[in-house]
Structure formats: C-alpha cells, structure tokens
Simulated scan of single mutants.
Amino acid sequence: MTRESMPHVVALCGSLRDESRTKVLLESLLETARKTGATTELVDLRSYELPSLHAVESEPPDADRLRATIDDADSVALGTPNYHGSYTGSLKDALDYCRREEFAGTTVGLLEVAGGEFPGSAIAHLRTVSRTLHAWPLPTDVAVPNARTMITDEEIADEAVAERVRQLGRDLVAYADVSRYPETVSRGTATETESEADD
C-alpha cells in the first residue's frame, strides 16, 4: 500500500532480548523516519508466535498478521544481532512466512549489531534474502561493531553510529516505494526537517 504524502516505515527487530541493542537502533531509526514525514511501526517478534516453517501442521494466525504488516509498508528496516556470522533464527522464521507478494517493490534498509569487531556478514545475507523476495535493499546500511560500548540500554553512545542510523531512517522515507521511480522522486532526497534541526 502506497502513501504518496506520508510513507509508512516498518521495522522488524530480530532480537528477542529484553534489553535489545538492535531495538535501540531501530527505535532511533523510526523516530527519525517520523520526523522526516513517515508513519512508523516496530514489529517486536516477541509478541508473535512464529514457529519454524512447517514445524506445525497448520499455519499460525500470527503469520497472516505479519504478512499484512509487511504488505502495508512502503519501506521495511530489518535489524538483527550477529549470531555466528549471520542473522537470528527468529528473524529467519519471520521472513520464511513472508512471500514475494508482500516484499516485492518494497524499499529495505539493513542493520546489524555485533559484539565483536567485524560486523557485516548478517547484512550480506539479509541483502540476498531481500533481493530474492524482489525487494529493493538500499546501499546505505548500518553495521555496528563492539555493541556493548557503542549502544547503551536507552541510546546510541557513538555519534557517528547514531548519525548513520538517522541517515538510514531518512533514506527509508526518501526512497520509499522506490520501485515506482520516477514517480516517487518528487519527494526529493532525505533532509532533516525543521523539527529535527531544532532538537
């Protein structure tokens, strides 16, 4: 579903931890997206019952709920901690329930949080998944190393990381529904709104 004047940005959090650093990033991204002129929604997979695909005989009702949320989005942010060089099983299960019909033509932004020094592999895997689902992954992404020092329980401690997250939030608004280019180019490039500049 496309909103010409107010794009809708949805973020999927692949972390199930109560004090999730991935969630802190996504909340900052969505705050920027709202300031840039979007409506937003955070999908906390802890509130969804999504067992491994085909692990149960009938499809869980939450699969339809998730697909409807993705189908309603103009842009989707996929955020994950790095688990053994890839993205989490919870995010994998969620994406397995989605079809190309929901993701096709949707702008996607990618974020990865790593405890060590070399993030990026989870983003590479999610970029492949996004393309397979016929989505449009943005060239801008956010890969955060040494997350324990970069992100506190409530905020991003490193300003360079914080600005990259904000830029991805702006890009998700500016290039929402990018598959309909050049119609959507009238929204222009992402810039800070007056309300954001005053903060």
Rank of each mutant, 00 (worst) to 15 (best):
A11M: 07
A143R: 03
R34M: 14
R99T: 15
I123C: 00
R67P: 13
A63R: 04
M6R: 15
E101W: 12
L16A: 09
T132H: 14
A197C: 06
A174P: 00
T69P: 11
A104W: 08
M150Y: 09
P7Q: 05
P145M: 08
D96I: 08
G109E: 00
A114N: 08
P182R: 04
T184Q: 10
E27I: 12
E112F: 07
T80G: 06
L168K: 02
A11F: 01
R148F: 13
A55C: 12
T106M: 15
R46K: 15
G105W: 00
A143L: 06
Y181N: 07
A197Y: 11
L45E: 02
E155Q: 13
V56S: 15
D18C: 07
L12M: 07
S86P: 01
N82S: 10
I151D: 02
R166H: 12
E41V: 04
T189Q: 12
V108G: 06
S195K: 11
G85C: 02
T152D: 15
T36G: 09
G109V: 00
G14S: 04
R100C: 08
G105D: 04
D177W: 10
V173K: 03
Q167L: 14
A33D: 07
A157H: 07
L45I: 00
C98P: 09
H8I: 06
A114T: 02
R67C: 12
E155D: 11
S75F: 02
P139M: 08
G37P: 03
D198K: 15
E154R: 13
L111Y: 05
R131N: 10
P137M: 01
A122Y: 02
Y175R: 10
D64G: 10
Y181S: 10
E27K: 11
S28G: 13
L66N: 04
V113K: 00
I70D: 05
G89C: 03
F103S: 05
A68Y: 11
D153C: 00
L78D: 05
V165W: 06
A197K: 14
P81C: 06
D177K: 02
V56D: 09
N82L: 13
L133V: 01
P81D: 04
A143T: 04
E102N: 08
T184W: 06
R34V: 11
R127H: 10
H125M: 09
N82M: 13
P182N: 02
G116T: 07
D171A: 13
V142E: 01
D44A: 05
E31F: 12
I123S: 00
E163N: 08
G14F: 05
P137F: 03
T193D: 13
S195R: 08
A160N: 15
G169F: 00
C13M: 04
I70Y: 12
T106R: 14
E196M: 14
T149L: 12
A55H: 13
G120S: 00
T132W: 14
P60R: 04
T69H: 08
D96G: 07
R100Q: 14
E117T: 14
T36V: 08
A157S: 13
L45D: 03
S15M: 01
G120M: 03
V129C: 04
V76R: 01
D72E: 15
V142A: 01
S5P: 01
A77Q: 05
D177M: 07
V161P: 11
R187D: 01
M1C: 12
E31S: 14
